[in-house]
Amino acid sequence: MDKYRKTGKKDLRSEYLHSLKTARVRIHVLRIALLILLITLWEVLTAHDILNPFIFSSPSRILATLNDLSVSGELWRHIGTSVLETVIGFLSGTILGIIIAIILWWIPTVSNVLDPYLVVLNALPKTALGPIFIVCMGTGIGAIIVMTLAISLIVTILNVLNGFIHTDVEKVKLMKMLGANRLQIFRKLIMPSNLSTIVNVLKINIGLSWVGVITGEFLVSKAGLGYLIVYGSQVFKMDLVMSSVVVLAVCAIIMHICIVLLEKATRKRFGIA
């Protein structure tokens, strides 16, 4: 009896929702299957010497290396160093970039004067400045953070300033007609309407900060994942290089997820679409 009564709208809806869920589950299963396939293939090919395990390492060798490193505590020291450098570089690049963008928006003359300088700095590959930073800052963590800053700062300034400048002129006009001064226009219109720009900048910067830190560690440093990679390649321990790359990927992903969660929270809090 029940079976006949349940036809109609509701059934169609639950069928649709069910099919959505199945499709989602299938994609997830396929993704994980692909990962397992690739890892297995890697292991099998290197175990049978079709790929040279001394060059390509292998999942089991990587696991063993990571185990050794973590038992000796080395792993955590290197991860800690790189993560700290990245977080400091990321925060200072982002905050400083936003502050400079605010100043440039506030005083158009300054932004007009500095425009060509920003263009040149943006076009310049910042890694070229690495040796200069090392000479100035010494071979410690300072040079690496400045390197990171150099890579993320200009992009931040340009993106945020661009967002500020392109805020709907009609809305600015409305604010003016309501009697708003420049500070009020900034706080009540420019800043909230550019939150999504800023969140995007955060996403870009977390990636750029890792580039800065690894490049910096390649050039100088006695610790960090970049150091491990360079050291491993110099002594031809490819297991160490591969292990470091895997750890690096995991760290970068975790930070990216943090930013995505932050993004979701801000969108919810400020109701931006």
């Binding site: 409305l174 309501l178 009540k188 679409a273």
Partner: peptide
């Protein structure tokens, strides 16, 4: 008082605080 072509209500404010925007500013 100025009423623009589009409503230009701010998407991050609810209706009440959109309506009182001018009061806040002034």
């Amino acid at each position: 008082g100025y009423m623009p072509q589009k409503d230009h209500l701010f998407s991050w404010r609810n209706i009440r605080s959109n309506i009182t925007l001018g009061l806040e500013i002034q």
